[in-house]
Design a protein around this nucleic acid. Structure first.
Length: 233
DNA sequence: GCGACAG
DNA sequence: ATCTTGTCGC
């Protein structure tokens, strides 16, 4: 199924599709040397169905920006916890296709396997674009865990029953942890190691942090900021 | 029935 | 997610 068709799905059909995707997930060590890495994010006005997607590519591990790409699209699929991918993946895929050179790995703002059906947006995108991905979320969706101690890089496993589905990582002191989980074609351990290498003094790792800044900027430049009305109301 | 609930 | 002022803590 192509992402452009997601908007026609009912929540029940979207969940059925996640069950199909789950069968194809491949969580294993990425053997290839990582030379570049990218971060992706979406920005939108809550009173509009326009979404701004953006990807920032960096060299790795020095994290110098080596490219960006953006895409603007519309979405009819509402935000439903657990079905985020159906709302954001279409525009993200467009931005991905606009990229000249694809990175070795992509970090997305949301969960990977730390999801009820292991199909968070990072896993979902990794599968449909066939690219290694990592999910880095700002809040928890699935998985039980104990608060990691308040020390940089302290971590705590997240479990679904006895299965390890993610890692709560303290990326910065006095800040809430971030929730890391592999998306596709990368291991849990590698995911955490890579994200640690992308922390630069902020709670959010550089790939996602800068992608967020980029999409927010293009949304404001497009004039799609604030206001619940427009000039013709 | 009640609480939880990525962005 | 987005909007938004002040405020608490390091």
């Amino acid at each position: 199924m192509h992402p452009s068709e997601y908007e026609h799905l009912t929540p029940a059909q979207a969940i059925a599709y996640q069950h199909e995707l789950r069968k194809q997930i491949n969580i294993c060590p990425l053997e290839k040397q990582i030379t570049n890495i990218a971060g992706a994010d979406i920005s939108f006005n809550k009173y509009s169905d326009v979404v701004y997607a953006g990807i920032v590519v960096f060299s790795y591990p020095d994290l110098k920006v080596i490219g960006t790409s953006t895409a603007v699209g519309k979405t009819k699929f509402p935000y439903i916890s657990g079905l985020l991918a159906f709302r954001e993946v279409p525009a993200l895929l467009e931005a991905w296709q606009n990229l000249k050179t694809k990175p070795d790995l992509l970090v997305l703002d949301g969960q990977g396997t730390a999801h009820e059906r292991r199909t968070g947006i990072a896993t979902h995108f990794g599968l449909i674009a066939d690219v290694p991905t990592i999910g880095s979320a700002k809040s928890r969706l699935w998985g039980r865990f104990e608060e990691p101690i308040d020390q940089p890089f302290a971590q705590s496993p997240m479990f679904d029953k006895s299965e390890l589905v993610g890692i709560a990582l303290r990326s910065k002191r006095n800040c809430n942890p971030i929730y890391i989980s592999p998306g596709h074609k990368v291991s849990m351990e590698q995911s955490v190691e890579i994200i640690k290498n992308c922390i630069r003094g902020y709670r959010i790792p550089e790939p996602t942090r800068q992608a967020h800044n980029l999409v927010n900027k293009i949304r404001v430049e497009a004039g799609d900021n604030n206001s619940q009305t427009n000039m013709f109301d």
